[in-house]
Nucleic acid binder design. Sequence first.
DNA 1: TTACATTATTAGGGTAACCTAACTATTATA
DNA 2: TATAATAGTTAGGTTACCCTAATAATGTAA
Lengths: 227, 227
Amino acid sequence: MKTYREENYLKAIYQLANHDKTKPVSPTDIANLLEVKPPTVLEKLAILVKKEYISYNKFDGAKLTSKGKEVALNIVRRHRIWETYLYKQLKFSWSEVHEIAEQLEHINSDKLIDRIYDVIGNPDFDPHGDPIPNKQGKLPKSDRRPLSQSIKGCKCVVLGVSEHSEVFLNYLTELNISLNDKLTVEQINSYDDTLKLGNKTKEPILMSSKAAQQILVQCLKPNCACR
Amino acid sequence: MKTYREENYLKAIYQLANHDKTKPVSPTDIANLLEVKPPTVLEKLAILVKKEYISYNKFDGAKLTSKGKEVALNIVRRHRIWETYLYKQLKFSWSEVHEIAEQLEHINSDKLIDRIYDVIGNPDFDPHGDPIPNKQGKLPKSDRRPLSQSIKGCKCVVLGVSEHSEVFLNYLTELNISLNDKLTVEQINSYDDTLKLGNKTKEPILMSSKAAQQILVQCLKPNCACR
DNA sequence: TTACATTATTAGGGTAACCTAACTATTATA
DNA sequence: TATAATAGTTAGGTTACCCTAATAATGTAA
């Protein structure tokens, strides 16, 4: 039996692990994300360990087992399908969809998810470029990586963002950057890694490395040395 | 704070009260409907009384206050809107929609409900003829009443059903009766109240009084003496 | 009207999910 | 490296929601 709370813990662990793959997923991080206190998390982690959804120890943090990853990816799938549906079919703004999808993702009906996934045209990516796992929990292939990993001369296409906060999305709007835009890295300031980006029709854009880390791109230049 | 459980208790009380207005809503009835045991219900009733959603005593049973009725009607509203949306927009069969709507009705987003209500065309009645309360909890006017209250000579139009079980709905399909059909009461057997119904194009239909109690109609005959 | 059956109620418990307070272990820093 | 700050953990408590078993009240039918 998986309750919606268990689903939320597994999703949180998945998200934290993916957000920074170098750092273990700590009880405190989970507590902050789910807005509960650390002892509550510890208690739940023990249960999730017993149910074999995760492993946990202080040094490696919480790690999803394959069983746990399956559940987590299924919720991510449902969340992104609902977000896309709300956005494309029901004309919600992108800043509104997340909160409602947080609720809808726990609706237990495979047929309903299949139906709305059909309606939106079975896409591999949601409108912000995030990949939608398939039913088996496999993520569609893509060469997305942070813009900050680019080198001078890279010609990239914007495929998504890692951060979904309203303030960041508004900032991108101000910079006049949107999904599928093509950007050329004209210069990288060697002191603070600020980027100067060419954007064909417009003035060059100056962007901090902090922002560049949150923008996901794919390099279009053949044989580019970037990774 | 209203949890989805509280919403379910209030909805159950509303439904039981409406199902048989002559009988008080008893803890046992609620327990059976919600598939819990009577002591669980008693406990919850005490809380609902304290929160002023209901009044309760052994003799009158549970009765919704105006505050409680508001909540209950809002859930009924959401339920019927979702059912209609699933049926009309997402092509679910009528027998499938109830279970999914039981979950969806608890999604907390007025904007979402407004949006899907718009999409289905702001109807006053759902596809089975059940009235959809408005935002203020007012039910649309209709002169629906059980077919069993008809007298000989009544000419009625079928507006809905009180019972939604699959077996009953299939039975109506067999009898070739559907929503908006016109029926004429040709005869009422005085022994067991069996009805003989005229149906223009077809052979007369014989119907038990038990079934007639579940069919909701409006009399179309001017100045008919039926009530 | 007594005896049986049903319903309402109370008593006492369990589990899940949350908390605070206190303690321990780790990490960071003066 | 001693000390302070932070993170992890344990102990113990609360509330919501559910239960069974026992008792009290009510209704029914011989």
